[in-house]
Amino acid sequence: MQHINVTVDGTSYEAEVEPRTLLVHWLREGVGKVGTVVGCDTSNCGACTVLLDGRSVKSCSVLAVQADGCEVTTIQGLSTGDDWHPVQTAFKECHGLQCGYCTPGMVMAAVDLLNENPSPSEEEIRDGIHGNLCRCTGYHNIVKSVQYAAELMGGRK
């Protein structure tokens, strides 16, 4: 077992973890952040995407011990319930989700994309989220959601 200290959604956690524990499993089982989900076992689907020190990562591709000393933001820490992040608002407004299973990862990937490129083209959006799979929407409204979020965040006119 190995000792880690990770800040998740603004709260600091100390834990003993098996070295093989994936970050996503520790987030779900160790911290109860079940808003972050697992969709595959080959790092293809992106459902488990979170921010690690502000950058998006697939939390199935990071060991919990690698997050030691880091700050993790999950979908549950992006905003409080009453207060919506512009990306969350945009996804609702543009019907960018149906079943909602890919949504936590998709939203976190979009947040990172817009942090890096506040005014992305459609092609840049499609390329930027191509590591996050969605089976419901055909991505049409996800692309629109990211475009609208960019507008809400002041990046697009």
């Binding site: 079940v34 979908i75 609702k92």
Partner: peptide, 19 residues
């Protein structure tokens, strides 16, 4: 109409079977 379902799904307040 915008969906009733979305608030919880967008905030990770979900009840998947695995949860």
């Amino acid at each position: 109409l915008r969906r009733k379902e979305d608030a919880k799904l967008l905030h990770g307040r979900t009840n998947w079977t695995d949860n």
